[in-house]
Design a binder for these strands. Structure first.
Lengths: 174, 174
DNA sequence: GACAGAACTGTCCGATCGGTCAGTTATTGT
DNA sequence: ACAATAACTGACCGATCGGACAGTTCTGTC
């Protein structure tokens, strides 16, 4: 039953967003009462947390790889830049990339195409025979469509949480 | 006053999402009453629509460019693929890129790097001297961070609207 | 000063939200 | 068979939402 709830919640959250999905919606989809959901999960947030646990682990692995590829200082700047990037992007649709050039200049940085390929495979996935460049390009368009509609954005608290959490994963001091 | 409302709404929508921002929140930020908002705008949706009007125009320009670059059939497949992509991405964090290979094989397609550069410049922006590859890479990471949290997603209606709207812009029959 | 219309507000409403709780039904161990 | 526990539910609550509406204040024209 827990699994049924998580399945329905995942589909509904994805379809209508967290705030756009009520407990009643999930209960109707599962075929049980709203109160039953709150028997299995302490509250609505707990359902989301459990759904995002694997995503968080995946992200940690990604950050770990990034640290290995770029070294500590570069990774630190990159993570901060990426967080800024994500926030800025959502706010203005356009991103100005600042403060991430350290990635370009770092002597330990492997060939950018290799990194891109790894990232595309790890994050995006690729159809057989498709080049990572095109996959990345389509992903870029995906960003735009994703952001062209009103989406939630982390507030300042979540921003700090994201940044410090990433630093912690990388073993860096904030 | 209309401009003040739009400014506040843009900032608050970006900070907390559309559903996460109440009319009272906007009114408090502007420094007027909630009823005053509804004097200037027929309802909450009207505020969002007006905010997204320029984004829509920008997207239309992008799609127009895409049609020129790739030809009608390719553009059609690409747009459908991108819509699927955006939806799929949000749903499962990972994307499987399918049905977009036509972009790769199309004889009229210019060098992919040129297209990427144009897109990065148009959509993402670039710091002086930064290569589009790195900008695209960072944008890719931005996608992940953007999607790693619960976000709104277009429902089936909006999906159809996106697709048919894009087709209309490109002068294609749906 | 009188008036008109735009700008604005306080107050109320129905609907819906997340969550609580007492009570009922199903399942299990002995 | 029976008690104990898990699973589940209907009814309800306070809070908040978007929106409606009558009435008030501001601003400009004659």
């Amino acid at each position: 039953m827990r699994a049924d709830i998580l399945d329905s919640a995942a589909r509904l959250f994805a379809a209508h967003g967290f705030r756009g999905t009520s407990l009643q919606d999930i209960a109707s989809d599962v075929g049980c009462s709203k109160a039953s959901l709150l028997y299995h999960f302490t509250n609505k947030d707990a359902i989301l947390s459990e759904l995002f646990a694997p995503v968080g682990r995946e992200f940690d692995v990604l950050l770990g790889r990034l640290a290995l590829l770029t070294g500590e200082e570069a990774a630190k700047a990159a993570v901060a830049g990426v967080v800024d990037l994500a926030l800025h992007f959502r706010r203005q649709v356009k991103i100005l990339l600042l403060g991430v050039d350290v990635l370009l200049d770092h002597p330990d940085l492997p060939d950018v195409d290799d990194v891109t390929e790894q990232l595309v495979d790890a994050l995006v996935g690729r159809a057989p025979g498709q080049t990572p460049r095109v996959a990345g390009w389509m992903a870029l368009l995906g960003i735009f469509l994703t952001s062209a509609r009103g989406v939630d954005i982390p507030d300042e608290t979540m921003r700090a949480e994201l940044t410090s959490g990433a630093f912690r994963t990388l073993g860096l001091s904030s």
